[in-house]
């Protein structure tokens, strides 16, 4: 199963009240790939993701999924194609893992329809893919941070969308759980061809795991392309206002960035 859905953002402007966060932004999301959106705090990364999945209405421009405006599509139909895991979803008190993951089936269910075989299979597959099947009967409140994030991803998987957006899926996780989540998303992308778009804080992890990097600055796209094209010293300076040195990551062969601050910098020879 490879996705052929195209997602294009044209001349998008979004704001809260009078404050414009995104202005005249154009972006095409490569289908079947992993895209990471990076940028400084409050540069509109989450806003972009939220308006791409129509949680926010744009003040101008449009987001086109297969040529159709997402803001005009029926809510459930869109939710069967495009899923979003927000930054801080709320787990209702006492809910079990199986129930929470089952909520992901909402867009596939009608008003009074019963729980179907397809629903069960989707939930089971999501639990297996995230290795959370053994936790199915446990209350979500009792899980560790890493387990909980895997359960939320399982919920998004149960939604069975061809496009999956994630808003900082690795925040609040320690490094081993960050890698675990990113590996899981890569599996998903490779096995099912799911198009993944995520906001990431860590530039080096973004460069390692994304096929396509988008650097945002000043409410627009500063650079987009392969990690090699985007993660450059000039780009980091422009986007983050930070000096750095970019090396080849010996593990992955992708670029990696070493920040240069005011302290702990060896005097350059000569």
């Amino acid at each position: 199963m490879t996705t052929t859905h195209t997602l294009a953002i044209q001349d998008l402007s979004v704001g809260y009240g009078d404050r414009a966060v995104i202005e005249h932004l154009d972006l095409a999301v490569p289908p079947g790939r992993i895209t990471a959106i990076v940028g400084a705090n409050a540069c509109g990364k989450s806003t972009l993701l939220r308006s791409m999945s129509r949680l926010l209405s744009p003040t101008g421009g449009q987001v086109l999924l297969d040529g159709r405006q997402v803001h005009r599509m029926p809510a459930k139909e869109l939710a069967r194609t495009l899923g979003l895991l927000p930054q801080s979803p709320i787990a209702p008190e006492g809910i079990t893992v199986a129930d929470l993951v089952g909520r992901g089936r909402h867009p596939h269910q009608r008003l009074l329809s019963r729980w179907s075989k397809a629903d069960d299979l989707a939930v089971a597959e999501a639990l297996d893919a995230t290795v959370t099947a053994a936790l199915a009967e446990r209350p979500v409140d009792e899980l560790s941070g890493g387990q909980r994030q895997r359960v939320w991803i399982a919920m998004a998987l149960a939604q069975q969308t061809d496009l999956l957006f994630l808003d900082e899926p690795t925040t609040f996780l320690d490094v081993s759980h960050q890698i675990e989540v990113l590996d899981l998303l890569t599996d998903l992308n490779r096995r099912r061809g799911t198009t993944i778009v995520m906001v990431l804080h860590d530039l080096n992890l973004a460069a390692r795991y994304a096929d396509h990097l988008v650097a945002l600055a000043d409410g627009g796209v500063h650079a987009s392309g392969t990690p090699q094209e985007v993660l450059t010293e000039d780009c980091v300076r422009a986007v983050f206002g930070l000096d750095c040195q970019v090396l080849e990551d010996p593990v992955s062969g992708r670029p990696m960035m070493l920040p240069i601050g005011r302290h702990h910098v060896r005097a350059k020879p000569g």
Partner: peptide, 11 residues
């Protein structure tokens, strides 16, 4: 109950 964002992402 999952929050407004999660709910609207679920349609």
């Amino acid at each position: 109950r999952l929050g407004d964002d999660a709910a609207s992402a679920l349609g």
